[in-house]
């Protein structure tokens, strides 16, 4: 567990350490907000309309394809760790798994969902 103690300390420290200069910056730096200064910066132009313009569904599809790969990779990692000791059957099982993963990619590719329009 001593390794995880280190990780826990590191998480706390690396969260707190950069917070100090931000607070110091708030204290040391001037603080004179006005409407023009705190206005949304869009290259000097007045901002028009809502910030929430409609984004294309493409972003969503890529995130979905990634999600599938992400979950599959999590399954593959322990298999990769055991790889050197795997018998023939285990190796074939892994290849079948990777090929299924590739099938997902081929499907998305052939159906044109990997095109960034």
């Amino acid at each position: 567990m001593s390794e995880w103690t280190f990780i826990a300390f590191l998480f706390v420290i690396s969260f707190a350490l950069p917070a100090i200069p931000i607070i110091a910056g708030r204290v040391l730096g001037p603080r004179k907000p006005n409407t023009i200064k705190t206005d949304t910066y869009e290259c000097g132009l007045e901002t028009v309309g809502d910030t929430w313009v409609q984004f294309k569904v493409q972003y969503y599809i890529f995130a979905l394809v990634f999600l599938v790969f992400d979950v599959e990779v999590v399954f593959l990692f322990p298999w990769a760790v055991a790889y050197n000791q795997l018998p023939l059957f285990g190796v074939i099982a892994g290849i079948v798994f990777i090929v299924t993963l590739a099938e997902a990619l081929i499907y998305a590719w052939r159906k044109g969902d990997l095109e960034w329009l």
Partner: peptide, 19 residues
């Protein structure tokens, strides 16, 4: 220099996630 500059909080910003 950066330490002495103002940290501007823009209008309509959501402060907690912003920092």
């Amino acid at each position: 220099k950066l330490l002495t500059k103002e940290i501007i909080i823009p209008t309509n910003a959501d402060i907690v996630p912003f920092f």
